[in-house]
Amino acid sequence: MSSTSQYNYAKGDTMLLHYLVREPKIQTENPPLLLLLHGVGSNEKDLFSRADQFPDEFLVISARAPFTISENHYRWFAVDFSSGRPIINAEEAEKSRTVLIQFINQLKEKHSFNSNAIYLGGFSQGAIMSFSVGLTQPQKLKGIIALSGRILTEIKPIIASKEKLKKLNALIIHGTKDTTLPIEYGRQSKSIVDKLGIPNTYVEFNYAHTVTPETIQTINEWLAKH
């Protein structure tokens, strides 16, 4: 049996993000870590609802974004689609990127896992943040999992060198019927990671802006190879 828990802040605690934990079903001394990031308007419970579908040997953690939209609704950064293209609050996006980097360091102090086997993945804005952290701090991760996301233009000046990036792996999944972040964003992401020399797997599914059992199966097959 696996165990799940909600992290509760203790008095004087300095953890930067609220999060949920699924302990590994198969206990090992240093399990790999799968850190999940939700999309805009959601919360840490969203992807965590699928926690028990991920590989038994993984420690699974799902984090809540730092900016509040309303009760139970959070964002990694504000975004405006009124122009037909996503216009972001770059300051909030950068703040979330730096918070996530610090949060990963904090998790190392709170939980036992293999720091050389950290996979950062998310949906939509969570995928965007996974790219933003992984492409700028690749030494912290073994892999990126990007579901229906894109790579922000704003991070391009701070992307790490190809030498550092070649040790990173990426899984990019996008729906051909996605009307929120159309398939072109997935294809652009694939092109960018190819040019950066990052080993990657790119998969298109015939669905919209969503996560399906097919998505989870593809993630698990990819994780098993790495």
Rank of each mutant, 00 (worst) to 15 (best):
S161P: 09
K162L: 04
H111C: 02
V133N: 05
E94N: 10
I118F: 01
T136C: 15
F123T: 01
K95T: 14
E92Y: 01
K140T: 14
L147G: 12
N116V: 00
H73N: 14
G134M: 10
G121N: 05
G121V: 00
W76Y: 08
K110D: 03
G84T: 05
I88T: 11
N89Q: 08
I128E: 00
K110S: 11
I144P: 02
S96I: 02
L141R: 12
Q137W: 01
P86F: 03
I144V: 06
L120Y: 01
K162V: 05
L168I: 04
I145C: 06
S83D: 13
V99A: 03
P157S: 09
T153Q: 13
G134A: 10
K140S: 14
L141D: 13
F123V: 05
N114R: 00
E92N: 04
I145Q: 06
K140G: 03
L147P: 10
A78W: 09
G149D: 08
A170C: 11
I155R: 02
I104M: 11
N89P: 07
S96V: 02
K108S: 13
I155C: 05
S83T: 15
P138C: 10
S161Q: 11
L152D: 15
I87T: 14
I155W: 00
Q137N: 14
Y119E: 01
S124Q: 02
S112R: 06
Q139K: 11
F113G: 00
L152C: 01
G134T: 04
L141S: 09
I151R: 10
E92G: 09
E91R: 08
S132Y: 01
A78S: 12
S82T: 15
T136M: 10
P86V: 05
W76Q: 10
M129Q: 09
E109F: 03
M129C: 01
F113E: 05
G143D: 06
K140R: 13
I118M: 09
T98R: 04
K108N: 03
S130D: 03
L147F: 13
I87N: 13
T98M: 10
A146N: 06
D80Y: 06
E109R: 03
G126V: 07
S115F: 02
I88H: 05
E91D: 13
L107I: 03
V133Y: 00
G134S: 02
F77Y: 13
Q106G: 02
I118T: 06
L135N: 07
T136F: 08
I145H: 07
G134Q: 02
G143R: 07
Q125I: 00
I118V: 15
T98P: 00
I144Q: 04
A93M: 05
E154D: 12
N72M: 09
L147R: 06
N89V: 11
E163Y: 07
R85I: 15
S82Q: 14
G121P: 02
I87L: 15
E71I: 12
S130H: 05
I128A: 08
F131K: 07
P138V: 05
G149I: 08
L107V: 04
K156Y: 08
E92S: 01
G84N: 04
N89W: 01
I151T: 06
Q125M: 10
L135F: 11
A127S: 15
G121Q: 00
